[in-house]
Design a protein around this nucleic acid. Structure first.
Length: 520
RNA sequence: GGCCCCGUCGUCUAGUCUGGCCUAGGACGCCAGGUUUUCAUCCUGGUAGCAGGGGUUCAAAUCCCCUCGGGGUCACCA
């Protein structure tokens, strides 16, 4: 019926926009994407917004921008504009007619029926079962209602639902691509279950099954929290005469307390990691490693490599704890690997956030279409009342590229470049137990050496300063106070680098200030 | 509680299907050392684990049984 080539793999990622897109969903999305790409299949994005009360457009946008940031693109599916595809709209809220069609079919075939039990009656029933230590189960007999009774009830009762009639004691089994054979018995499912509300609006399991069929999903890859939905979905598929897709249930990502990762475990919002200074390739690499590995010792790879190596069979069955330590390590690795210009661009928002610079735009006289240039960003270190070019910021960032674990650290690490005066205690200038007078002397020597430099280059500074330092009892006694004078920190980039980036004038000014400070 | 799933260093994991090459390998973390003026990077070394108990076998992390532990799920949510 559908124009779908045989053996064409189609997967779907079907999040519900009821909260910010989080790590767990990102992992499910990623694995679907990897599986699709690896098998040259199609990756479909469907928005499951049947819960009108909890679904919000804002969350839907968050899903899309997060996927985009990670580099997970979808071949088909919902877009911000909401175009329809070959299979109709990709938002469940817009697919009502499709569900109704299948619902009526089930009703006509008496595979589903109206249930007029009120909420109170059902609660009572469950209460009773709980007391008898029986599992909760629908034991109503609305299925037995005759046509006339049904019509009567429809008028009398305001509330009703539609339930699927399921066999009593039947084994349901499916072969999970990750966990192997999984078995259920219909007697454990809890009786006939609700598939739609009074207005014929479908519940999750029903909508999901209909859409998977309509959209020709060949594989359903989702979180382990859905295994218990699977037998219900298979029952619906059987009732509707649909073919059963292959299932693969991914283990859950756990918090440090080993329970399902949730808000109470800290940042779970995926986009929050961007804001905290993580790189998308780091997140992708890290999340992929949570529950999957290529079967050997390699573990640092980018999307393309992961796609090549990926297979569902190499996925873990047990849940994995989200370990920030390793994420930080991987993030640091990718920060070091990237081009400094890229890193600088990404650091700029963090420098702004840390109140160290402001971004200004140099307005071009004409817009590009009329021959003008693109408006360019320029930077203003307001504490120093100093304009900075991109390259100046880049020089600063380059000093910390191999010291950062997250981009957000740049502010704390490099703040002394952007402030008038580095803040520190004068005791910090003292190298080991050297007397303060000696430090002053060495500071003087450094000032003298640097003043004599005509061509302010990185090489020249190092050459001359090393000469000076070698004349002292040890290099530390010269270089430590210099570094502290310039940075105000006990740990920082090297003194020659800092001096070079700071410029001759500012370097000498800070050294002189340190001397004065020491004498106070 | 019913049902389903899982259990190798603190964490992520290789090894389990097809017992021996496992004295259980790698990575993060941590510790020590080297490079270095500091920090970081980088390099070297170390630390630490088969949940427990029974079998089967010449031989078990690997096969079988039991126990224990952990998680998921039981809505007119998804």
């Amino acid at each position: 019926m559908k124009k779908n080539k045989k053996n064409d793999i189609r997967v779907r990622f079907a999040p519900s926009p009821t909260g910010y897109f989080h790590i767990g969903s990102a992992r499910v999305a990623l694995f679907n994407f990897l599986f699709a790409k690896k098998n040259k299949g199609t990756f479909v994005l469907r928005i499951e917004d049947t819960d009108k009360e909890r679904s919000k457009k804002e969350y839907e946008k968050d899903i899309m921008r997060s996927l985009e940031w990670l580099g997970i693109s979808w071949d088909e599916g919902a877009t911000p504009k909401g175009e329809r595809g070959e299979f109709g709209p990709y938002r469940q809220s817009e697919r009502g007619e499709i569900y109704k069609k299948y619902l009526r079919k089930l009703l006509e075939e008496r595979k589903a029926y109206y249930c007029f039990c009120s909420k109170e009656e059902l609660d009572k029933m469950r209460e009773k079962q709980k007391k008898k230590k029986e599992p909760p189960r629908y034991e109503g007999n609305c299925f037995l209602l005759s046509e006339s009774e049904k019509e009567k009830m429809k008028k009398e009762r305001k509330d009703f639902t539609i339930r699927l009639h399921i066999p009593d004691n039947k084994k349901i089994e499916f072969n999970d691509r990750i966990r192997g054979k999984v078995e259920f018995n219909t007697k454990d499912i809890g009786g006939d279950f609700v598939i739609a509300k009074k207005d014929l609006s479908p519940l999750y399991n029903f909508a999901c099954v209909v859409d998977d069929h309509e959209m020709n999903a060949t594989h359903v890859i989702r979180g382990e929290d859905h295994v218990s939905n699977t037998p219900k979905q298979i029952l619906i598929q059987e009732a509707l005469g649909f073919s059963i897709p292959e299932f693969a249930h991914l283990p859950l990502i756990l918090g440090t307390d080993k329970s399902k990762l949730s808000k109470r475990h800290g940042t779970v919002s995926l986009y929050g990691y961007k804001e905290k200074g993580y790189l998308p390739e780091a997140l992708v690499n890290f999340i992929a490693l949570l529950g999957w590995n290529p079967g050997n010792d390699e573990e640092l790879f980018v999307m393309e490599e992961i796609i090549n190596k990926f297979s569902l069979e190499d996925c873990q069955k047990s849940g994995a704890i989200f370990d920030m330590g390793k994420l930080n390590y991987i993030n640091g690795y990718y920060i070091r690997k990237r081009d400094v210009s890229d890193i600088t661009k990404m650091c700029i928002p963090h420098l702004v956030e840390a109140d160290l610079i402001r971004v200004e735009f140099t307005e071009e006289q004409y817009p590009p279409a009329y021959g003008g240039k693109e408006p360019k960003e320029s930077y203003y270190a307001h504490h120093r009342e100093k304009k900075m070019s991109f390259n100046e910021v880049k020089d600063i960032v380059s000093l910390y590229q191999e010291r950062m674990r997250t981009l957000a650290e740049i502010g704390e690490l490099a703040n002394y470049f952007f402030v008038k005066e580095p803040v520190y205690e004068k005791e910090l200038l003292i190298w080991k137990n050297t007397p303060a007078e000696d430090i002053t002397t060495y500071l003087d020597k450094s000032i003298k050496t640097l003043s004599d430099i005509k061509e302010w280059s990185r090489e020249e500074i190092e050459k001359r300063m090393v000469e000076t330092a070698n004349k002292a009892q040890n290099r530390g006694v010269v270089l430590w106070p210099m570094r502290v004078a310039l940075s105000g920190k006990k740990a920082s980039a090297g003194p020659f680098d800092i001096a070079y980036v700071l410029g001759k004038e500012e370097t000498l000014r800070r050294l002189k200030n340190a001397k004065i400070k020491l004498q106070q």
